[in-house]
Amino acid sequence: MTRVVEVPAHFDDRSFDQFAKAYGVPGEERLLFDAHAVQWAAPYGLLGLLVAGQTTVEQGGQPPRLTIPTDRDVLHYWGRTGFFEFAGEWFEIHGKVPRVSVTRSSEVLLEITPVRGSDDVHGVVGVIQERAAAILSGELGLEATATMGFGMALSEACQNIVEHAGTSGWVAVQTYHWRRRLGRRVVVIAVADAGMGFRRSLQATQGGRYGDRWGDATALEAALIQGASRFRDPGRGQGLGGIRRYLNRWDGKLSIRSGTARIAIVPSWDDDIPLADSLAPFPGSQMLQIIPAKQTE
C-alpha cells in the first residue's frame, strides 16, 4: 500500500508544518513524496525532504518514491542546489533528473553539503567566507563586520549536527530577493539532520529540572534561551547564543524546529510566533537563519 505525501507548492519554512503533517509517522506503507506541482522550494524545504527520505529508510521502510517537479526551472534549480546528489540515496526517483551541474551562483552560495564531522565544518566555512563577504557587504549593504560573524554562525549551526544529532546532516546557503515577504534581499542558512532532536539530546542533563513540563518546546527553550547543553562542561551550550546574538545585531531571524515544537527569535519584519508547540512531529532538527539586506531609508 502506498501513502502519498504531498510536497507543498511553495515549500519553505512557512509551509513546512503542512509537509510534516502530511509526512506523519510512517508505518508499514510505502511513501510517495509527490513534488510534481512544486513551483518553488527553499533550501529549508529541500533539506526537510532529504531528512524525511533518510528517516524513512533508516527506520526500515522501503525507499520512498519521489515524483520530481514538472516545472523545468524548478527542476533545474533543484539540480543546481545539489539535491539530486543525495536524493538518490534515499528515494526512488520518478521523473527525469536533469543533467545540471551543481554550481555556486549568484543565488546558490553553498550547495546542499553533507555535514558529518569537524572536517566538513572547516570545508563549509572555508568555502563560504569570500562569497558571503561579497554578498553581505555588497548586495545586502551590511557593514563589513557582518561578514566576519557569518562564518561563526554557520559553523555553530553545523556543529550542532556534529555534536548533538548523533547522525550526519546537511547545510545549504542561499540568497534571494524576497519581493512579497520582505521586499528585500536575504541570505538564508538552512541546516537539518535526521538525528535525535533537542529533547532527546538534552534529556539526561536537563530533563529532571523541568519534570512534567519536559518536552520538545522546553528543550528548545533550554538550548536557545538558557544555553543548556547535554554536556556537563560549563563551556558548552554557547553556540546557539552566539548565533542569536549575531542575528539580533543584523536584524536577522533564527528559527529552530525539533520534534513537535519550533522556537524563533523574531525580528520586527517577520510575523512568526516565538514558540510553537504541538506541531506535527518531524524527525531530527531543522535550523533556519535569515539575514536581510539593510533597510534603505
Binding site: Q129, S155, G235, Q238, G239, G241
Partner: peptide
C-alpha cells in the same frame, strides 16, 4: 586566523 567560532574560542581562550 580567519574565522573564530565560539566553540573554538571556548577551547582555546576559555579553557
Amino acid at each position: 586566523v580567519g574565522c573564530l567560532d565560539i566553540s573554538c574560542a571556548d577551547e582555546i581562550v576559555g579553557k
